[in-house]
C-alpha cells in the first residue's frame, strides 16, 4: 500500500483532483463503450422483429 490512510489515498499527495478526474473520464468512456452497443442491440432486435412480423402479416 502506497498510502497511509484513506484520506491520503483520496488526496493523492495534492494531485487528487487530476488523478480522480482522469479515472472518472476513463470510467465514463469504458461504460459508454459497453452500454451503448448493448442498448443498440436491443433496439436493433426490436426493430428487426417488428419488420419480420410486418412481412409475415402481409404475406
Amino acid at each position: 500500500m502506497a498510502f497511509e490512510s484513506f484520506a491520503d489515498f483520496l488526496n493523492m499527495g495534492g494531485h487528487g483532483l487530476y488523478v480522480w478526474l482522469c479515472y472518472g473520464l476513463g470510467l465514463l468512456i469504458v461504460v459508454a463503450n459497453l452500454l451503448l452497443p448493448m442498448q443498440q442491440s436491443k433496439q436493433v432486435i426490436r426493430e428487426l422483429r417488428r419488420r419480420l412480423r410486418r412481412e409475415e402479416g402481409s404475406a
Partner: peptide
Amino acid sequence: GLAFAPADYQQGNSFRI
C-alpha cells in the same frame, strides 16, 4: 496502479494517470 504502485519520485502521485 492507484493504491499499491509506488509514487514517482519526480511527479508524485499524478504519475498514476
